[in-house]
Computed example of a mutant assay.
Amino acid sequence: MISKKIGIVQEIISKTEEMEEVKVKIGNSINKAINYPKINSSVNVNDEVLLNTSAVELNLGTGGFHFVIANLNKLESKMSEGGHIMKLRYTPLQVKTFSAEEQESKYHDKIKNFRSLDDMPVIVGTLHSMLVPFAASYKRIDKKKKLVYIMTDGAALPIYLSKNVQNLKKNKLIDNTITIGNAFGGDYECINIYTALILAKEVLNADAVFVCMGPGIVGTSTKYGFTGIEQANILDAVKKLKGKPIAIPRISFADKRDRHFGLSHHTVTILKDIVNANVVVPIGVECTKNKEYVMNQIKESGIDKIHNIVYIDNDKTKSDLEYFNLRVKSMGRSYEEDKEFFNSASSAAYYLLEG
Protein backbone atom coordinates (compact mmCIF):
# COMPACT_ATOMS: atom_id res chain seq x y z
CA MET A 1 0.00 0.00 0.00
CA ILE A 2 1.02 3.62 -0.55
CA SER A 3 1.01 6.23 2.18
CA LYS A 4 -0.31 9.48 0.67
CA LYS A 5 -0.60 12.99 2.05
CA ILE A 6 -1.41 16.42 0.63
CA GLY A 7 1.19 19.16 1.02
CA ILE A 8 1.67 22.79 0.02
CA VAL A 9 4.84 23.79 -1.85
CA GLN A 10 6.77 26.28 0.30
CA GLU A 11 10.05 26.64 -1.60
CA ILE A 12 11.77 25.53 -4.80
CA ILE A 13 15.24 24.28 -3.80
CA SER A 14 16.46 23.39 -7.29
CA LYS A 15 14.84 23.08 -10.68
CA THR A 16 15.65 21.46 -14.04
CA GLU A 17 13.47 20.26 -16.89
CA GLU A 18 13.67 16.75 -15.48
CA MET A 19 13.56 17.13 -11.68
CA GLU A 20 12.53 19.65 -9.06
CA GLU A 21 13.55 19.53 -5.40
CA VAL A 22 11.07 21.40 -3.24
CA LYS A 23 10.04 21.94 0.34
CA VAL A 24 6.46 21.11 1.20
CA LYS A 25 4.35 21.78 4.26
CA ILE A 26 2.35 18.84 5.60
CA GLY A 27 0.33 19.89 8.63
CA ASN A 28 2.85 21.70 10.81
CA SER A 29 5.98 20.05 9.39
CA ILE A 30 8.22 21.04 6.49
CA ASN A 31 9.69 18.22 4.38
CA LYS A 32 11.66 17.83 1.18
CA ALA A 33 10.02 16.36 -1.90
CA ILE A 34 10.98 15.47 -5.46
CA ASN A 35 8.83 16.25 -8.48
CA TYR A 36 9.37 14.98 -12.02
CA PRO A 37 7.90 17.66 -14.34
CA LYS A 38 7.80 15.30 -17.33
CA ILE A 39 5.34 13.17 -15.38
CA ASN A 40 3.41 15.70 -13.29
CA SER A 41 4.08 19.12 -14.85
CA SER A 42 6.14 21.71 -13.00
CA VAL A 43 5.20 22.99 -9.53
CA ASN A 44 5.22 26.51 -8.11
CA VAL A 45 5.23 27.92 -4.59
CA ASN A 46 1.78 27.56 -2.98
CA ASP A 47 0.75 24.73 -5.31
CA GLU A 48 -1.13 21.90 -3.61
CA VAL A 49 0.47 18.53 -4.30
CA LEU A 50 -0.40 14.91 -3.63
CA LEU A 51 2.62 13.14 -2.12
CA ASN A 52 3.81 9.57 -1.75
CA THR A 53 5.26 9.66 1.77
CA SER A 54 5.89 5.92 2.19
CA ALA A 55 9.71 5.79 2.01
CA VAL A 56 10.26 8.62 4.48
CA GLU A 57 7.80 7.08 6.93
CA LEU A 58 9.75 3.80 6.68
CA ASN A 59 13.11 5.61 7.02
CA LEU A 60 14.31 4.10 3.73
CA GLY A 61 17.37 5.36 1.90
CA THR A 62 15.70 7.89 -0.37
CA GLY A 63 17.53 10.89 1.02
CA GLY A 64 14.57 11.88 3.18
CA PHE A 65 12.36 12.85 0.22
CA HIS A 66 8.68 12.50 -0.45
CA PHE A 67 7.62 12.12 -4.10
CA VAL A 68 4.99 14.17 -5.88
CA ILE A 69 2.25 12.00 -7.38
CA ALA A 70 0.26 14.90 -8.84
CA ASN A 71 0.15 18.68 -8.85
CA LEU A 72 -3.44 19.33 -7.82
CA ASN A 73 -3.29 22.80 -9.35
CA LYS A 74 -2.28 21.41 -12.78
CA LEU A 75 -4.07 18.12 -13.16
CA GLU A 76 -4.17 18.01 -16.96
CA SER A 77 -1.21 17.59 -19.32
CA LYS A 78 -0.50 16.31 -22.83
CA MET A 79 1.69 13.42 -23.98
CA SER A 80 4.71 14.14 -26.12
CA GLU A 81 4.52 13.00 -29.74
CA GLY A 82 5.98 9.76 -31.05
CA GLY A 83 6.48 6.33 -29.57
CA HIS A 84 4.10 3.88 -27.98
CA ILE A 85 6.15 1.81 -25.53
CA MET A 86 4.87 2.19 -21.97
CA LYS A 87 7.09 1.98 -18.91
CA LEU A 88 5.70 1.55 -15.38
CA ARG A 89 3.04 -0.34 -17.29
CA TYR A 90 -0.46 -0.73 -15.84
CA THR A 91 0.21 1.68 -12.99
CA PRO A 92 -1.39 5.10 -12.55
CA LEU A 93 1.97 6.65 -13.50
CA GLN A 94 2.67 4.66 -16.67
CA VAL A 95 4.98 6.66 -18.93
CA LYS A 96 4.96 6.65 -22.74
CA THR A 97 8.42 6.44 -24.31
CA PHE A 98 9.84 6.25 -27.80
CA SER A 99 12.02 3.15 -27.67
CA ALA A 100 14.89 2.94 -30.13
CA GLU A 101 13.89 -0.48 -31.44
CA GLU A 102 10.22 0.13 -32.23
CA GLN A 103 9.09 0.07 -35.83
CA GLU A 104 8.77 3.85 -36.28
CA SER A 105 12.30 4.50 -34.99
CA LYS A 106 15.02 5.49 -37.43
CA TYR A 107 17.27 3.02 -35.58
CA HIS A 108 14.92 0.08 -36.10
CA ASP A 109 16.72 -1.43 -39.10
CA LYS A 110 20.18 -1.15 -37.56
CA ILE A 111 18.97 -2.96 -34.46
CA LYS A 112 17.06 -5.51 -36.54
CA ASN A 113 20.08 -6.32 -38.73
CA PHE A 114 22.57 -6.62 -35.85
CA ARG A 115 25.07 -9.49 -35.94
CA SER A 116 27.72 -9.09 -33.24
CA LEU A 117 29.19 -6.77 -30.59
CA ASP A 118 32.60 -7.68 -32.05
CA ASP A 119 34.24 -8.05 -28.63
CA MET A 120 33.12 -4.58 -27.48
CA PRO A 121 33.96 -4.30 -23.76
CA VAL A 122 30.96 -4.07 -21.45
CA ILE A 123 31.68 -3.30 -17.81
CA VAL A 124 28.94 -4.39 -15.42
CA GLY A 125 28.59 -3.11 -11.87
CA THR A 126 26.14 -3.79 -9.08
CA LEU A 127 25.92 -0.40 -7.34
CA HIS A 128 25.31 2.98 -8.95
CA SER A 129 28.25 4.46 -7.03
CA MET A 130 30.64 2.36 -9.17
CA LEU A 131 29.89 4.54 -12.20
CA VAL A 132 31.75 7.71 -11.21
CA PRO A 133 35.21 6.26 -10.46
CA PHE A 134 35.10 4.11 -13.59
CA ALA A 135 34.09 7.03 -15.83
CA ALA A 136 36.70 9.34 -14.27
CA SER A 137 39.55 6.90 -14.84
CA TYR A 138 38.33 5.82 -18.28
CA LYS A 139 38.08 9.36 -19.61
CA ARG A 140 41.28 10.58 -17.98
CA ILE A 141 43.23 7.76 -19.61
CA ASP A 142 41.73 8.54 -23.03
CA LYS A 143 39.14 11.31 -23.33
CA LYS A 144 38.52 10.45 -27.00
CA LYS A 145 37.06 7.05 -26.17
CA LYS A 146 33.26 7.04 -26.29
CA LEU A 147 31.55 5.77 -23.14
CA VAL A 148 27.85 4.86 -23.03
CA TYR A 149 26.01 4.26 -19.76
CA ILE A 150 23.06 1.85 -19.64
CA MET A 151 20.90 2.21 -16.54
CA THR A 152 18.83 -0.83 -15.60
CA ASP A 153 15.60 -0.90 -13.62
CA GLY A 154 17.13 -2.68 -10.60
CA ALA A 155 16.79 0.41 -8.40
CA ALA A 156 15.64 3.98 -9.14
CA LEU A 157 13.58 4.11 -12.32
CA PRO A 158 13.92 7.77 -13.41
CA ILE A 159 17.51 8.50 -14.44
CA TYR A 160 16.77 12.09 -13.42
CA LEU A 161 17.27 11.11 -9.78
CA SER A 162 20.99 10.55 -10.31
CA LYS A 163 23.02 13.68 -9.75
CA ASN A 164 26.07 11.57 -10.59
CA VAL A 165 24.77 11.08 -14.13
CA GLN A 166 23.94 14.77 -14.46
CA ASN A 167 27.44 15.73 -13.36
CA LEU A 168 29.21 13.16 -15.53
CA LYS A 169 27.28 14.26 -18.61
CA LYS A 170 27.97 17.93 -17.88
CA ASN A 171 31.69 17.16 -17.67
CA LYS A 172 31.51 14.99 -20.82
CA LEU A 173 32.60 11.88 -18.94
CA ILE A 174 29.56 10.00 -20.28
CA ASP A 175 28.73 10.43 -23.95
CA ASN A 176 25.24 8.92 -23.99
CA THR A 177 22.77 7.27 -21.62
CA ILE A 178 20.25 4.50 -22.28
CA THR A 179 17.48 3.46 -19.87
CA ILE A 180 16.04 -0.04 -20.11
CA GLY A 181 13.17 -2.11 -18.74
CA ASN A 182 11.01 0.18 -16.63
CA ALA A 183 13.81 2.68 -16.09
CA PHE A 184 13.26 5.83 -18.13
CA GLY A 185 14.63 9.25 -18.96
CA GLY A 186 17.88 8.39 -20.74
CA ASP A 187 19.02 9.98 -23.98
CA TYR A 188 17.67 6.80 -25.54
CA GLU A 189 15.06 4.31 -24.35
CA CYS A 190 15.25 0.56 -24.93
CA ILE A 191 13.08 -2.36 -23.96
CA ASN A 192 15.85 -4.60 -22.59
CA ILE A 193 19.59 -5.06 -22.14
CA TYR A 194 20.03 -6.81 -25.49
CA THR A 195 18.64 -4.01 -27.63
CA ALA A 196 20.40 -1.42 -25.47
CA LEU A 197 23.78 -3.07 -26.09
CA ILE A 198 23.01 -3.29 -29.79
CA LEU A 199 22.05 0.40 -29.88
CA ALA A 200 25.28 1.34 -28.09
CA LYS A 201 27.33 -0.57 -30.65
CA GLU A 202 25.48 -0.01 -33.93
CA VAL A 203 24.10 3.50 -33.47
CA LEU A 204 26.18 5.23 -30.78
CA ASN A 205 29.53 3.71 -31.81
CA ALA A 206 30.56 3.13 -28.21
CA ASP A 207 34.15 2.15 -27.42
CA ALA A 208 32.93 0.81 -24.08
CA VAL A 209 29.62 0.43 -22.26
CA PHE A 210 29.08 0.65 -18.52
CA VAL A 211 25.95 -1.05 -17.16
CA CYS A 212 24.50 -0.80 -13.66
CA MET A 213 21.32 0.14 -11.85
CA GLY A 214 20.47 3.64 -10.68
CA PRO A 215 20.61 4.78 -7.04
CA GLY A 216 19.09 2.46 -4.45
CA ILE A 217 20.14 -1.21 -4.49
CA VAL A 218 17.81 -3.52 -2.56
CA GLY A 219 19.13 -6.27 -0.29
CA THR A 220 17.64 -8.68 2.25
CA SER A 221 20.65 -10.40 3.90
CA THR A 222 19.81 -13.55 1.94
CA LYS A 223 21.96 -15.25 -0.67
CA TYR A 224 19.80 -14.45 -3.69
CA GLY A 225 17.59 -11.64 -2.42
CA PHE A 226 19.30 -8.54 -3.82
CA THR A 227 18.73 -6.55 -6.99
CA GLY A 228 22.45 -6.55 -7.82
CA ILE A 229 22.04 -10.18 -8.86
CA GLU A 230 21.10 -8.76 -12.26
CA GLN A 231 24.85 -8.45 -12.90
CA ALA A 232 24.92 -12.14 -13.82
CA ASN A 233 22.16 -11.91 -16.43
CA ILE A 234 23.76 -8.83 -17.98
CA LEU A 235 27.19 -10.48 -18.21
CA ASP A 236 25.58 -13.49 -19.89
CA ALA A 237 23.79 -11.18 -22.34
CA VAL A 238 27.09 -9.52 -23.27
CA LYS A 239 28.68 -12.91 -23.94
CA LYS A 240 25.66 -14.07 -25.93
CA LEU A 241 25.97 -11.01 -28.19
CA LYS A 242 29.73 -11.67 -28.59
CA GLY A 243 30.92 -8.79 -26.48
CA LYS A 244 33.60 -8.82 -23.79
CA PRO A 245 31.99 -9.11 -20.31
CA ILE A 246 33.86 -7.48 -17.43
CA ALA A 247 32.50 -7.72 -13.88
CA ILE A 248 33.29 -5.10 -11.26
CA PRO A 249 33.60 -6.89 -7.91
CA ARG A 250 32.10 -5.34 -4.80
CA ILE A 251 35.01 -4.96 -2.38
CA SER A 252 35.04 -3.05 0.90
CA PHE A 253 37.06 -3.04 4.10
CA ALA A 254 34.92 -0.30 5.62
CA ASP A 255 31.67 -2.26 5.63
CA LYS A 256 31.48 -3.94 9.04
CA ARG A 257 28.92 -6.53 7.96
CA ASP A 258 30.71 -9.86 7.63
CA ARG A 259 28.88 -10.71 4.40
CA HIS A 260 30.20 -7.56 2.70
CA PHE A 261 33.69 -7.41 4.25
CA GLY A 262 36.46 -7.82 1.69
CA LEU A 263 34.88 -9.46 -1.34
CA SER A 264 31.11 -9.17 -0.87
CA HIS A 265 28.96 -12.29 -0.76
CA HIS A 266 26.97 -10.63 -3.56
CA THR A 267 29.97 -10.88 -5.87
CA VAL A 268 30.76 -14.44 -4.80
CA THR A 269 27.16 -15.56 -5.37
CA ILE A 270 27.02 -13.98 -8.82
CA LEU A 271 30.37 -15.29 -10.03
CA LYS A 272 30.17 -18.73 -8.44
CA ASP A 273 26.52 -19.71 -8.66
CA ILE A 274 24.65 -17.56 -11.18
CA VAL A 275 26.60 -16.32 -14.21
CA ASN A 276 27.15 -18.84 -16.98
CA ALA A 277 29.72 -16.94 -19.04
CA ASN A 278 33.43 -16.80 -18.33
CA VAL A 279 34.13 -13.16 -17.47
CA VAL A 280 37.03 -10.87 -16.62
CA VAL A 281 37.16 -9.73 -12.98
CA PRO A 282 39.69 -6.92 -12.39
CA ILE A 283 40.90 -6.69 -8.78
CA GLY A 284 42.53 -3.42 -7.72
CA VAL A 285 43.44 -3.53 -4.02
CA GLU A 286 46.62 -1.66 -2.98
CA CYS A 287 47.09 -2.70 0.65
CA THR A 288 49.05 -5.97 0.80
CA LYS A 289 47.09 -7.26 3.79
CA ASN A 290 43.74 -6.49 2.19
CA LYS A 291 44.84 -7.90 -1.16
CA GLU A 292 45.81 -11.18 0.50
CA TYR A 293 42.44 -11.28 2.26
CA VAL A 294 40.61 -10.93 -1.05
CA MET A 295 42.87 -13.45 -2.77
CA ASN A 296 42.06 -15.99 -0.05
CA GLN A 297 38.33 -15.33 -0.48
CA ILE A 298 38.67 -15.87 -4.22
CA LYS A 299 40.55 -19.14 -3.77
CA GLU A 300 38.17 -20.43 -1.09
CA SER A 301 35.16 -19.69 -3.28
CA GLY A 302 36.78 -21.26 -6.33
CA ILE A 303 35.83 -18.41 -8.65
CA ASP A 304 39.44 -18.21 -9.87
CA LYS A 305 38.85 -21.58 -11.54
CA ILE A 306 35.76 -20.25 -13.35
CA HIS A 307 36.69 -16.70 -14.36
CA ASN A 308 39.67 -14.65 -15.49
CA ILE A 309 40.79 -12.87 -12.30
CA VAL A 310 43.17 -10.02 -13.16
CA TYR A 311 45.09 -8.15 -10.45
CA ILE A 312 45.58 -4.49 -11.35
CA ASP A 313 48.16 -2.13 -9.84
CA ASN A 314 46.12 1.04 -9.51
CA ASP A 315 46.97 3.93 -7.19
CA LYS A 316 45.44 6.59 -9.44
CA THR A 317 41.74 6.54 -8.55
CA LYS A 318 41.83 9.46 -6.13
CA SER A 319 43.91 11.51 -8.55
CA ASP A 320 41.46 10.77 -11.38
CA LEU A 321 38.51 11.90 -9.28
CA GLU A 322 40.29 15.07 -8.19
CA TYR A 323 41.33 15.82 -11.78
CA PHE A 324 37.65 16.16 -12.71
CA ASN A 325 36.68 17.67 -9.35
CA LEU A 326 34.42 14.73 -8.55
CA ARG A 327 33.30 13.59 -5.13
CA VAL A 328 32.08 10.08 -4.47
CA LYS A 329 30.02 8.37 -1.81
CA SER A 330 28.75 4.84 -1.41
CA MET A 331 26.59 3.76 1.50
CA GLY A 332 27.39 7.19 2.97
CA ARG A 333 31.15 6.59 2.82
CA SER A 334 33.63 8.82 0.97
CA TYR A 335 36.68 7.73 -1.00
CA GLU A 336 38.93 8.13 2.04
CA GLU A 337 36.58 5.97 4.09
CA ASP A 338 36.15 3.15 1.57
CA LYS A 339 38.88 3.45 -1.07
CA GLU A 340 38.94 -0.26 -2.01
CA PHE A 341 35.34 0.00 -3.16
CA PHE A 342 36.04 2.88 -5.53
CA ASN A 343 39.42 1.51 -6.63
CA SER A 344 37.68 -1.67 -7.79
CA ALA A 345 35.54 0.24 -10.27
CA SER A 346 38.42 2.43 -11.42
CA SER A 347 40.65 -0.61 -11.94
CA ALA A 348 38.29 -1.91 -14.64
CA ALA A 349 39.18 1.17 -16.69
CA TYR A 350 42.89 0.54 -16.21
CA TYR A 351 42.42 -3.07 -17.21
CA LEU A 352 40.77 -1.92 -20.45
CA LEU A 353 43.01 0.94 -21.49
CA GLU A 354 46.38 0.04 -20.05
CA GLY A 355 46.19 -3.74 -20.13
Rank of each mutant, 00 (worst) to 15 (best):
K272N: 10
I246R: 10
K239Y: 11
D255P: 05
L263M: 14
I246G: 07
S252V: 02
R257V: 04
P282D: 01
A277C: 11
K242D: 15
I246E: 09
K223E: 12
T227F: 05
P249W: 06
N233E: 08
R259H: 03
M295K: 12
N290G: 00
A232V: 01
Q231I: 04
A254I: 03
I274E: 06
V275H: 06
L241A: 09
L235C: 10
I248S: 05
H260T: 11
N290K: 13
R250S: 02
T267Q: 00
T269F: 10
F253D: 11
L263R: 06
K239M: 02
Q297N: 02
P249S: 04
S252I: 04
K223L: 13
R257F: 00
T220D: 10
G219K: 07
T269D: 15
I248H: 02
I229S: 11
N290R: 05
T267H: 06
I251P: 03
K289C: 00
G219C: 08
P249F: 05
K289A: 01
G228M: 12
K223F: 04
I274K: 00
V268L: 15
I274A: 00
N233R: 10
N296Y: 13
R250H: 12
G228W: 06
I251F: 03
Y224F: 14
I248G: 11
G284Y: 13
E230S: 12
K289S: 01
S252Q: 08
D236C: 04
F226V: 01
Y224G: 01
I270S: 02
L263A: 07
T222K: 05
P249G: 00
S252L: 05
K223H: 07
D255V: 08
Q297E: 08
D273Q: 13
I217S: 12
L263D: 08
D258W: 03
M295P: 00
P245V: 03
V238K: 10
G243P: 08
N233P: 01
F253P: 12
F226T: 14
E230Y: 14
L241V: 14
K223C: 02
A254S: 15
T288W: 00
M295C: 04
I283H: 04
T220P: 00
K272C: 02
K272G: 00
L235H: 09
I217L: 14
L241R: 12
G225E: 08
T269A: 15
I251K: 06
H266N: 03
K272D: 05
